[in-house]
Design a protein around this nucleic acid. Structure first.
Lengths: 202, 202
DNA sequence: TGCGCTATGTTGACACTGTACACATTGCCG
DNA sequence: CGGCAATGTGTACAGTGTCAACATAGCGCA
């Protein structure tokens, strides 16, 4: 008996995908630490070392799961598809609040995809841009196209914006803002985003 | 032979302090993950379970070390003691850049003291305020005392400010800004802080 | 059609971790 | 001076990631 109830023994079919799926479940609560390699293997009905046929090590599996989550964030941020009449400023607001909203809604996944050091690539390559980053860039471009942001101040404007929402999300999740009521949190988030935008356009 | 070269056998003298010291060394590179309970015990020349006489578990030891680091940050931020003629705005700038500077200078300690979820207390109690937080609050108070910030906007202004520098530090350490030259990093940090302040005063 | 190679699993082991339990030693206090 | 509480030790257990050697299955080629 190779293992427990496996429909087709020995060969799994698509183990790689199954492991990522298990990883998504395991990290949903518990974040990156919630994913134990052996645990994922168990859940899929496979021996621990089988994982190594598809991922170099636990970290590689973690990264693969993180990538999925990043895609999911971008999808979630586009749910609030802006009506065409929306100002670029409001669009940027929506991106920022979407980022924070995801963090609050899915703390585990957020930790995995953005909180863990090394979750995001070292340098962002033009070809494989993380999905949420692309949304931010587009919003900033719209801001200058609309004339609200001086083109000279456009370059690298991503970092201060991202810093604000990223920091807020982490303070709200694991920092001193943890345990604050959802209502207060929404207000603080809103203010943080507004301040970042105001400062950028100042 | 109870253990290796111990000057006084069995009773250590001040094991608690010694463990915190070892914790400081171990977390300096490697952050929170760099501190293994058994490793700290080994370094001090004591059996692993002896640690439990002074700390409830590994997490308690970690928290004790984190508290030390937080104190150290505040000290480091006061090194740049501002001349009395400094404007409140510049004081706030210095606090923010001090925070980021510490993160870049001591990534491991920063991860331990601020990066790890739960490193900071849940709700900040008025009696035991984390040292860096107090510096931020004071700078904001000075801003309103000087008339630069409307008193109505003072409450809870800590969060947007902290968010910006906290987020920047983490993006610089483990995120897409990792590997960027120190010069570029300083500039981006400076801009991030300025934007936060501009937005706050807008 | 059948053979063999390679991709994909399994088993067993190792070093390591945090932690619980029972026991040993010590210094202080009555 | 005796005993007690504080403090440290030893042993053990469950769990982890990872490596090396072995087993199986399916695909391409004779």
């Amino acid at each position: 008996m190779p293992h427990a109830d496996s429909p087709r023994s020995y060969h799994h079919g698509d183990l790689r995908e199954a492991l990522i799926g298990a990883g998504l479940e395991l990290t949903r609560d518990g974040g990156a630490d919630g994913l134990a390699l052996r645990d994922a293997a168990r859940r899929v009905g496979v021996s621990p070392t089988a994982v190594y046929r598809h991922f170099a090590d636990r970290d590689a599996l973690l990264s693969a799961v993180a990538e999925r989550v990043q895609q999911r964030v971008a999808d979630g941020m586009q749910v609030a598809e802006p009506p065409p009449s929306t100002s670029a400023r409001d669009r940027l607001r929506a991106v920022g609040l979407g980022y924070i909203g995801f963090a609050l809604r899915e703390p585990g996944w957020f930790d995995l995809a953005f909180g863990r050091p090394g979750a995001l690539q070292e340098r962002i390559e033009p070809d494989r841009v993380p999905a949420p980053f692309a949304a931010l860039s587009a919003a900033l471009d719209a801001l200058v196209a609309e004339g609200a942001l001086d083109a000279a101040r456009r370059p690298d404007a991503e970092w201060p914006c991202w810093s604000a929402v990223h920091g807020f999300a982490l303070l709200a999740l694991g920092g001193p803002l943890r345990g604050v009521s959802a209502e207060e949190l929404r207000e603080a988030a809103s203010r943080t985003v507004d301040i970042a935008i105001d400062g950028l356009l100042a």
